[in-house]
Amino acid sequence: MIEARHLLKRFDDQTVLDDVSFRIENGESVAIIGRSGCGKSVLLKHVIGLLKPDRGEVLIDGENIVPMDERQLLRVRRNFGMVFQGAALFDSMSVAENVAFALRRNENLTEAETARRVARVLEMVDLPGTEDKNPAELSGGMRKRVGLARAIIYEPQIVLYDEPTTGLDPIVSDSIDHLILRVRDHLKVTTVVVTHDMRTARRVGQRVLMMHDRKIHASGAPEEVFNSPDPVVRQFIDGVADPEKSTHGNIAS
């Protein structure tokens, strides 16, 4: 279970998160939406302890991770997998080395067993036989898939996705959405997806949190949020610069 309580985060004199609280139950799939630069990725990084709030608490299975130092956080992070916006693959390593990284560092497996598990997760993300490729040889969608394979190889309980479909064409985005659902259903993981892609949010989120003006502005089931008459939500869902042009309806679908 992930719980954030009254998070406040400032970078210099700019407040990015202001009294943000939410709770995500085990096995739940949540999409966090909001405009670019509204603090979605910052919020996600607080969940895994990559950033610390200036005030507030982040509880993972009831344990507050905010006061923990980096070494204590390593233990907590073994429950997490994270897929980064730019994939963040280690460019000095092959695909297989990237995917096997956590196994080699944290578990004593034979090379044969490691190779078998790498092949299995690459199969799961529809990239069989790419073990020997370098990250530079991969397309954007393939990089995201390798990033996902790397995140799930040690079967975490929580998988975080930071803008998984940004920069991808609609067809590849669709396949990534299906992959997120496949991983969720196959591994029974808690899924948190930060996105400003409405189709992804609608498809992968059992619940949607919308961030606006440094706070959680709206929260609810996808239909509830996507049909909300709230002008801020409508403007974002309808994707119009002028709030006057927003309509109450199911346009995003």
């Binding site: 990084k45 895994i48 990559l50 980096e70 070494r71 956080l73 390593l74 233990r75 992070r77 073994r78 997490f80 997998g81 994270m82 980064f84 916006q85 730019g86 963040a88 693959l89 280690f90 460019d91 990284f101 956590a102 560092r105 944290n106 790397r150 995140a151």
Partner: peptide, 14 residues
């Protein structure tokens, strides 16, 4: 700058 250090941290590596 390419978040590879953050990726290391998420993979439980200091």
């Amino acid at each position: 700058v390419t978040e590879q250090i953050d990726a290391l941290r998420t993979l439980a590596t200091h």
